[in-house]
């Protein structure tokens, strides 16, 4: 079997975006929502849908955007994973239905109570009608993601796979997104 190459790596943590060892964006702002807003502005992303996304989608989107840019990705699969699924948004949605006095379930929030929505957002941005998978794992397991990605590549279902660990719960977040090719 051919071995795979990891060509690009983007990490986001501690209010810093790093692409292939270069710091792309950094701010003293600690709060994730503000950090994401500042990064969006500074990087001139120009994609208004970004503001409607939940925090997990923003995290996954920002990290992917650094690698994907505006090229053609019609043969690139997406394999993502995290630990907390969509629990950050789940808790917000739950608060909207906890009491009958304050009962306001919103479809715009509910739709983000699934972890794979962030993969959908990336697919929409880049019109990627390609293989998608989202796993929820106890901890980041790069070997697992790579094994799964290898199968997709070997079966000829894609030429490249964007893999990602996108973990977010409240103010604790970490993204590690990388591109694999044969």
């Amino acid at each position: 079997m051919k071995t795979m190459k990891k060509t690009d790596i983007c990490t986001i943590e501690n209010s810093k975006i790093v692409l292939n060892n270069d710091i792309i964006f950094e701010t003293p702002t600690e709060n994730f929502s503000d950090f994401a807003k500042e990064a969006y502005k500074s990087l001139a992303l120009n994609y208004p849908k970004f503001h409607k996304m939940d925090n997990l989608s923003k995290l996954a989107f920002l990290a992917s955007e650094m690698i994907l840019k505006d090229e053609d990705h019609s043969r690139m699969a997406l394999v993502f994973a995290n630990r907390s699924s969509s629990l950050d948004t789940d808790l917000k949605y739950q608060e909207s239905i906890n009491s009958k006095e304050n009962y306001f379930p919103s479809p715009a929030v509910f739709v983000y109570t699934l972890p794979n929505i962030c993969v959908g957002e990336i697919s929409i941005k880049h019109k990627m009608q390609t293989e998608n998978a989202f796993f929820v794992l106890d901890e980041f397991d790069e070997n697992f993601l790579n094994d799964y990605a290898t199968q997709i590549l070997h079966l000829g279902k894609a030429d490249k796979v964007l893999c990602g660990w996108v973990e977010l719960y409240q103010e604790s977040y970490q993204a590690f997104v990388y591109l694999l090719t044969l």
Binding site: F134, L137, D138, D141, D147, Y148, Q151
Partner: peptide, 28 residues
């Protein structure tokens, strides 16, 4: 072995079969 959780909205159940097939085929 460590459990693998598949969470892809309403296609998860179909994908779980695919994941089993692909991970066995990967030799893991």
């Amino acid at each position: 072995t460590k459990p693998i959780v598949v969470s892809n909205a309403c296609v998860s159940g179909v994908m779980a079969i695919a994941v089993a097939k692909n991970m066995i085929r990967a030799g893991k």
